Computed example of a mutant assay.
Amino acid sequence: MRSGARPGGRDPLKLGAAFDRLKTERGWEMPIAVGGVTGRWPEVVGPEIAQHCEPEGYDERERVLTVRCDSTAWATQLRLLAPQLLVRLNGELGSGTVKLLKVKGPSGPPRTPGQWRAPGSKGPGDTYG
């Protein structure tokens, strides 16, 4: 069904074509692509890394993917592997989609001062980075 004698912008579209047009018009290609990779994280980075590190967020403006690791040792290992992972991620997403991999260690328990806690003491620095 068409709106006139010739094809135009008001003609009905198939759902896939309408979605592709919408994501292009709104500039959603990159966030959707990154979301697809985070959904397939074990396939992209490998099962061993995926077991200890997971994507936490993506800053579209800066093109930074933030990854949280379950230990400081894995955070260090992932920082060493970052150049290879950036190549693999940009191969999946398109060149320049991820410029920086920001690696975070495990988050510790909330630091609320208790009755017997000295002000300014942070606790074990080796565990929570």
Rank of each mutant, 00 (worst) to 15 (best):
R63I: 03
L65F: 01
G39W: 11
A50H: 07
E54Q: 11
A18H: 14
W41M: 05
K23S: 02
R63Q: 14
R63S: 03
R63K: 15
T38R: 11
L65P: 01
G46W: 11
A18D: 04
K23G: 00
V64C: 03
D59Q: 09
D59S: 10
G57S: 11
W28H: 09
G27P: 04
G57V: 02
A50D: 06
G39Q: 13
G39I: 01
I49R: 07
W41P: 00
A33G: 04
E62H: 03
L65M: 12
V37T: 02
G39S: 12
K23E: 03
R61I: 11
E60V: 15
G27M: 09
F19W: 14
R63W: 07
V44W: 03
P47M: 09
D59N: 12
R61Q: 09
E48C: 00
E62T: 01
V34P: 01
M30Q: 11
T66N: 02
R26N: 10
R26S: 06
Y58F: 15
M30A: 10
H52C: 04
I49K: 10
W28F: 11
V34D: 03
G57I: 04
E29L: 00
T38K: 09
I32V: 15
V44R: 03
D20G: 07
V67K: 03
F19P: 00
A33I: 01
Y58Q: 08
T66F: 05
C53V: 08
D59K: 09
R63E: 04
G39E: 10
R63A: 11
V37C: 08
P42A: 13
G46E: 06
E43N: 11
K23V: 15
R40F: 05
P31H: 10
V44M: 06
G35T: 05
W28M: 07
E56K: 10
A33M: 02
E54L: 12
R26M: 09
T38H: 04
G27C: 07
R21D: 10
V64K: 14
Q51D: 13
G46M: 03
V45D: 05
V45Q: 09
A50V: 11
T38M: 13
C53D: 00
P42M: 14
G57N: 08
C53I: 03
P31D: 13
V67G: 02
P55F: 05
F19M: 12
R21L: 14
P47I: 12
E54I: 06
I49L: 14
G27D: 04
L65A: 05
H52N: 09
G36L: 02
R61L: 10
L22Q: 12
G27Y: 15
P55C: 07
G36P: 00
V34W: 08
R26D: 00
E43Q: 15
T66C: 03
E43V: 05
V45R: 08
P55R: 03
P55G: 07
W41L: 05
T38A: 02
V45A: 06
F19N: 06
R40S: 11
P31L: 13
P42N: 13
T38N: 01
E25K: 13
C53L: 08
L65G: 01
R40Y: 04
R63Y: 08
G27W: 14
R21K: 13
V44K: 01
E56M: 05
L22I: 04
T38I: 13
I32S: 08
E60P: 01
H52A: 09
M30K: 07
T66W: 00
A50I: 04
V44C: 05
V34S: 08
D20W: 02
E54D: 06
E43L: 14
A18N: 10
G27Q: 07
